[in-house]
Structure formats: C-alpha cells, structure tokens
C-alpha cells in the first residue's frame, strides 16, 4: 500500500503542528509534510490538517486572522472540490471563520481555559473520519481550549441535525449526553461536526493527543485510521 500524503498547515502561533506531524508520520506511518501559511501550494496532499494552537495569538478572535493567510485560498478550493480537511481545536475555529463549517465559538462557560480528558459520543459513522468504528462509540480524548463553546442559531442547528452533521458530542463515560458532561457549554453538546458534503470535519478535542497508549488513551486512532481507510478505498457516503 503506498503512503498517503498529509499536509499539516503551519500558521504563526500554531502549536500542535509538530504533534500532528509526529503521529501521522511515526504512529500512522504516512507521508507527512508541513504547509507554510504564506505559500500557495498544497503539495498534492490527500488530506489537509489545520492543527491546534493560537494562530496569530488568537488576537481579535480565535481563527479570525488566520482566515486571511495566503494558503487559505487553495484550501478553500481543495475543500470545495471534495478534498479531506480536518480542523482540530484552533483549526476548527479557523474552519468556522472561513465559513467551511457553520456556527461560531464563544468562551467556555466557566470563562477559563480547560485542559483535560473528556468523553465523546460518536454520533455518525458515515463520514470519511469515522468509518472505522467497530463497537465502542464512546471515546476518551483530551480538550485544551479557551473558546470551545460552540454556538449556532437555532435554524442552523436544525439544518445541521437534519443533515446528520453532528459527529461528536460531549458525553459522560457511559455515552449519555448530559448537561454536566458539557464542559464548555456548547449548543447540543457539539464537540465536532462535518459539512454537508462530509469532507470537512472540525473538532475541539485533540485526537493527536490520544494516539499513543503511553499518553493515556488510544481513542484518537479511530479518526486517523478512518481517514486512511477512506482515502485508500475512496468510499462514498452520500
């Protein structure tokens, strides 16, 4: 099996770029490279990852300035053409600012930065990012963010639900969607969602931090393995 090509975008202030690069190359064994935000070349990537961090210091608003980076033009074209894009944490925020996903992020409900393992319920296994789920639909993956309180208007939420776009929701360890498990106050406990076409996923939790058992959880593996499976088999979900 030939290796897939993963491009990890580096904005000024990205700080999970090295982590994402490490797991893709060393844990999943894929051909991985950085994409500099000032360039105009996606280097024939099969999948683009917008990593976590504080692009442009999160000044103005998380993701608001990164949206104007030169490379975002090519990223938009790639996404509109059906290319796989995964935005993690700050990457999710950038996807919202770019309009590739609906909604916006507010400050966490307790107004503090939150870093801890949370439980997620996987709600949709018919996406390029979740096709490798066997049984367990509850994942333990860390979050680390200040602005992860997902918000969208009720019309938008209806639309998202009608289209089955919710992929991950904050849950308790049994997978129940409760108010208590909703660590940051997100509407409908939303932790991650895809666009209508299913090729763009944004998620606040960090699957790259849950890819090696030494670090306490392997549950992020299902996401990367799904992407690899999808790209290798060119699956269709529509």
């Amino acid at each position: 099996m030939s290796k897939l090509r993963f491009g990890v975008v580096v904005f000024p202030g990205s700080n999970c770029d090295h982590d994402t690069f490490h797991v893709l190359r060393n844990v999943y064994g894929q051909d991985t490279f950085y994409l500099w935000h000032k360039d105009h070349d996606l280097n024939n990537a099969d999948c683009i990852i917008l990593p976590g961090g504080f692009s442009y210091g999160d000044y103005l608003r998380s993701g608001a300035i990164a949206k104007f980076s030169p490379l975002m033009k090519e990223l938009q074209e790639f996404a509109h053409g059906g290319g796989l894009v995964l935005g993690i944490c700050n990457g999710f925020q950038v996807l919202l600012e770019l309009g590739l996903l609906p909604g916006a992020m507010l400050r966490n409900k307790n107004l503090k930065f939150l870093c801890e393992h949370v439980h997620l319920k996987m709600e949709n296994d018919q996406t390029p990012f979740t096709n490798q789920w066997q049984e367990n639909r509850v994942l333990r993956i860390p979050i680390a963010h200040f602005d992860g309180n997902y918000y969208a208007s009720s019309d938008t939420i209806e639309e998202i639900k009608t289209n089955d776009q919710i992929v991950f929701r904050y849950a308790d360890r049994e997978g129940r969607i409760t108010e208590e498990a909703n660590v940051n106050g997100s509407v409908e406990n939303i932790a991650g969602l895809v666009n209508k076409q299913r090729n763009v996923l944004g998620m606040m939790p960090h699957p790259e931090r849950a890819s090696e058992s030494l670090l306490g959880s392997n549950d992020g593996q299902a996401i990367f393995k799904s992407i690899i499976h999808h790209l290798t088999h060119s699956l269709n979900y529509s």
Binding site: N15, H22, K112, L114, C115, P142, R209, E212
Partner: peptide
C-alpha cells in the same frame, strides 16, 4: 489549577500533573 494549563501539548506528558512528579517521554 492544573486544568487551566495546557499540560499535554507537545504530546510528551506521560504522567499528568497531580502525581508525585511529572514524567515526560522523549520521542523515540
């Protein structure tokens, strides 16, 4: 206190805050 700090970025933290000491792996 500790949950306000990102204590996992760089994915080396093998023993999280709260233990007697923190343990960091060195990749490879």
């Amino acid at each position: 206190v500790f949950r306000q700090y990102d204590h996992m970025v760089q994915i080396n933290t093998a023993l999280l805050p709260g233990a007697d000491a923190s343990v960091l792996r060195l990749k490879n």
